[in-house]
Design a protein around this nucleic acid. Sequence first.
DNA 1: TTGAAAATATTGAATATTCAACAATTGAAG
DNA 2: CTTCAATTGTTGAATATTCAATATTTTCAA
Lengths: 155, 155
Amino acid sequence: MGQDKVSAVARPPKDNSPITEHLAYLLAQANREINRQLEMRLSKEGVPVEQWRILKVLSDGNGHSMGELADAVLLNHPTLTKMVDRMVSDALVYRVQDPKDRRKVLMFVSDRGKALSKRLNSLAVSQEEHIVESYGDKSTNELKRLLESLIDSSN
Amino acid sequence: MGQDKVSAVARPPKDNSPITEHLAYLLAQANREINRQLEMRLSKEGVPVEQWRILKVLSDGNGHSMGELADAVLLNHPTLTKMVDRMVSDALVYRVQDPKDRRKVLMFVSDRGKALSKRLNSLAVSQEEHIVESYGDKSTNELKRLLESLIDSSN
DNA sequence: TTGAAAATATTGAATATTCAACAATTGAAG
DNA sequence: CTTCAATTGTTGAATATTCAATATTTTCAA
């Protein structure tokens, strides 16, 4: 009698499903938790997660415009501008006007920024290793694959 | 020669891997995008995502303490207090002091809040249906399963 | 029973984010 | 070429979030 309960999670949620069955909620919850953990690790260097992202993106050595960078690090423009101001004060990055298009500003990482980036990367990698330990290799890779594909399908 | 490239994503990221290979980044990116979409739908009712969550949790009809609610809706306490203040002004929810433990405040949803909650649920469900359409039934359910299990393994 | 510690919620100040307006430059149509 | 629209980045004001301190109530040990 009744249908099989093949999995705890099935079909799009109904009006009265608990919020924990909504994809949007599960993503927010997982993101919050993982981000909190990463934040704790990075606090050893006194740096917020967003600055790790910025330094990592700039660490390819190329100049990146503010717009490009904002997309890459998941911040909107004014927020990025203000965070970059702070990082310039801390001598982690610097601005150069783009000679090809003088509306643009190209961001570069300084030597000091590169050194910090290395230390932050270690912390971030170690966090992910810790996740893989408790969550498993397969699950981690499968989850990453599905997230990438969700993002692709949303564009 | 070299190892098989079974998947684009393999193993924990190295120091120099692009940021897009980090689980923490993929989660943030996916969450941002899905949240943005949901936000757009809910803007029809002029309500932020967090208020949908609050109304949905309270819609079980039971009283929920602020602490309980803060956990459930992924907000920290002061932020929730202030958002609830607004919702009380809008007559969507109301506070009752818990008679069993007078430190606590129990939150309840009003009739007006219930009505709004219904409309918001429709919008949220329709969003998820839209995701399922482009992303697929199987992927969606598999992703939900993996997210739940990641959250479990992080406690 | 009393007093100290813990739990719960709120407040106000400090900080951060967002929105809308602006300035500068480029692109493109007439 | 000139002008107008689009692009890019920044700024300041409005809004929201967070941190630390506070008030209240409960718990628990002495």
